[in-house]
């Protein structure tokens, strides 16, 4: 029993890692631009397909492909900012609708480019570290956990310790005051969009060998990310990370001990309950909705 619990806990930690990367990006974009990016799941998918195209199809080293995924999806984010969110800055519902349009386009492009089939991405490594004879961690999953911790720490450092980060947080709190301080709203929006989208792409790229890559994979991701940011409090980065961990554990345990659909229902119900009882989220304070 203990082994099963520990094993499930490790699986949950892996899930928490990539969910945090996705959710933190979503929160960052919402915080700075006031737009909920419905295409975030498809940005994750785009990251996965970069790995399919480079690593699986063209034998580019995995880590190069992952970095390419981050940058490529980051650039997609910049395109969204320039083409959609900037012209719709005064229209949050419009931004949301436009992101749904972008979601459809990315999905269709994936179908046209790769077909609706599931992609096979060869595993990076089959190595498994075994603890106490019973608990095994696949090294590939360990990489995801490490990468997430490193990148989230880097983001934390960037936001709290650099001038750009200060500007970003200032304009998330009060865009007008930030503009008066000489902070360029456009510049902070671009940085937020690049990081936010890039993190989604990174998560997609990292997990590509471990999940089934297909054009419709974004749906599960975005639903999960919504649950996490609502539970964590829209606008709170720390809340998003904590909620990712909570959600990953609840979901993984319910999946292991009951079944996957019930786990999804539990997650969504958790979100509905938070919405009903405390719409600002369990850890949230600031919100711009």
């Amino acid at each position: 029993m203990f082994e099963l619990l520990a094993q499930t806990g490790l699986n949950a930690a892996y899930a928490a890692s990539y969910i945090s990367l996705v959710a933190v990006g979503l929160v960052l974009i919402f915080g700075v631009m006031g737009v909920i990016n419905f295409a975030h799941g498809e940005l994750f998918m785009a990251g996965s397909y970069v790995v399919v195209a480079l690593y699986a199809d063209r034998m580019v080293p995995f880590f190069v492909a992952v970095v390419a995924g981050l940058i490529f999806v980051g650039i997609l984010g910049l395109i969204m900012e320039r083409a959609l969110f900037r012209p719709l800055r005064d229209n949050p519902l419009g931004g949301l609708v436009a992101s749904i349009g972008f979601l459809l386009i990315l999905q269709a492009l994936a179908v046209l480019g790769f077909g609706v089939r599931m992609e096979y991405v060869p595993p990076l490594t089959q190595d498994v570290i075994v603890f106490a004879d019973k608990i095994s961690i696949p090294v590939a999953r360990l990489y995801v956990i490490i990468a997430a911790v490193v990148m989230l720490s880097a983001l934390w450092y960037f936001l709290k310790r650099t001038r750009f980060g200060w500007a970003l947080r200032a304009s998330a709190q009060d865009p007008e005051a930030a503009a008066l301080q000489g902070i360029s709203v456009t510049q902070t929006a671009m940085i937020a969009m690049f990081i936010g989208a890039g993190f989604a792409g990174l998560a997609g790229a990292l997990t590509a060998p471990l999940v089934s890559v297909n054009p419709h994979m974004g749906h599960t991701i975005i639903v999960t990310a919504f649950i996490v940011i609502i539970v964590g409090g829209v606008g709170s980065l720390e809340g998003a990370v904590v909620a990712s961990v909570v959600y990953a554990f609840v979901h993984t345990f319910v999946t292991t001990f009951y079944d996957g659909v019930l786990a999804d229902i539990t997650g969504l119900s958790l979100m509905l309950i938070v919405l009903i009882v405390k719409p600002t989220g369990l850890f949230g304070s600031a919100d711009r909705a």
Partner: peptide, 11 residues
């Protein structure tokens, strides 16, 4: 390409 066209039209 239906989703693609719908997406473009929506945007």
């Amino acid at each position: 390409t239906r989703p693609l066209i719908y997406g473009l039209i929506l945007i």
